Computed example of a mutant assay.
Amino acid sequence: MRCGITLFIQGYQDWDRFEAVENGESTTPLDPQEDIKRFDQEIESALKLEDLGFDSLWTVEHHVSPYTMITNPIQLLSYFAGATSKIDVGTMIVVLPWHHPLRVAEDMTMLQYVLRGRTPYIGVGRGAGRREFRQLGFDMNESKERFAESIQVIQKALTEERFSFKGEHYQFEDVSMRPRPRDPQQLLDAMHFSWGSPASAPIGARFGLKPLIIPQKPWADYHTDLTEFSRARAEVGLPPVRPRIHMNVFCAETEAEAEAGARQYVPQYADSAVRNYELFSNHFATTKGYEHYAQMANAVPSKEVAAAGMAQTYLDNHVWGTPEQCITKLRAIADEFHPEEFMLVMRFGNMPQDVAEKSTALFAREVLPAVHEFPTMEPIAYEAEPAAV
């Protein structure tokens, strides 16, 4: 089975200052050296991953806040395409409502060219960060419709030399894209969709996208989502497919060291996610298409409670421990979901570079060979609701 690494490049230490500025409070100015240092370190560490035996390198898209500081995943992956020779690359995700869809198709095509035969896995989604929509100048209420139109435009641009499209948000008349993709079918087959609520799962499935799980809830809950995903694919004549699965990982020589690291850094990641998405805020209640997030926000009384709950969910469901424990947990997830690939984030929160590199090297040495031996199983059909595991 395949196993890759995801770059988050977080600026977690800046959240308090960032929120103070956002609230109009007087505080110390941003020290740009913190961002420069983090980027330099993460790029340096990422350049070692190919030699460590990982199959792919992934990254994310976010704007504005210190949550993750990667504003253009395809641009960053184009650098790594030139700096490596074997690994594939992927996005988790490109937020389509923030982009002109023809430009996304062009960027995907260019990435395919510079990879020279390797595969670009393009995961897409519709976004849930209010700050990002506001500061980029897009209406969050339109995200579902913009996403659906964008997918159709991208698929036409990749497969038709000239195409037309008439939607509410995008209109094209006899448009062409050059260069033509090296292999349009490869790009289509490698497109994935990540979602935040069960009701959103069918949106990407109906357009032939494959599932990309970025877990924020217990694993068993994703069977419901994947059932809806598979049902939506079947409705348009598409067969079951394997998901790709992302998770946070911390690997250490001893169980005590692994638990200490996980309990230090995983809650920092959870706190950062809650702050970025404002999962405690009532704004979702008045935003079209985000009813699931509104229900989540109604269930928590404060930011602190939301962060603590997410931290516990991550500690319960993500992967940390000794190499043997990591293998056991990953095998259980593989047996339950029959994934195509794992994509692991090994540095998150305020984790120092040396701590992350030690964890990554140990994982590569003692866990990765075992993961590569996992069989790639047939996709789960999800013809009926499976029993919780």
Rank of each mutant, 00 (worst) to 15 (best):
P179L: 05
V89D: 10
F250G: 12
P97S: 14
E357Y: 01
E373P: 00
A83Y: 00
N72S: 15
A256R: 13
P32D: 04
A387K: 05
A157P: 09
L76R: 05
H318N: 09
E366F: 09
I74K: 11
H192K: 07
P218T: 05
A262N: 07
R17C: 08
P339H: 11
A294Q: 00
I5E: 08
I9N: 09
W58V: 01
L362R: 06
M310P: 04
L102H: 12
L136V: 11
A334Y: 03
S143M: 09
L52M: 14
K358Y: 05
G90K: 03
P215F: 04
L96D: 09
D40Q: 08
Y67N: 03
N317V: 01
I154D: 08
E340C: 04
E34F: 15
S230Y: 03
A388R: 02
Q10L: 07
F147L: 09
T91W: 00
L368H: 08
I36R: 14
A356S: 12
V249P: 01
R2Y: 11
M92E: 12
M177H: 08
L188E: 01
S272P: 09
P73G: 05
P369I: 04
R206M: 11
A285P: 03
D14H: 00
I214W: 05
L209T: 00
F229W: 03
R231S: 10
M1S: 09
W219L: 04
R118T: 09
Q10H: 07
D107T: 07
C251S: 04
S200M: 13
N72D: 13
P97A: 15
T360R: 03
W219R: 00
F39W: 14
Y290T: 15
G167K: 10
A361S: 12
A306I: 10
G24K: 13
T6F: 11
E42F: 11
F337I: 00
R263A: 14
A256C: 07
H318S: 12
K358Q: 12
L344C: 15
L238T: 00
H192Y: 15
V355T: 12
A364K: 01
E340Q: 07
K217N: 10
E145N: 12
Y12W: 13
A128T: 06
T91P: 02
P379R: 07
A46Y: 04
E304D: 13
P386I: 04
T6L: 11
P66H: 08
V89P: 04
R134I: 15
T328V: 08
V94Y: 01
F147I: 03
P301F: 03
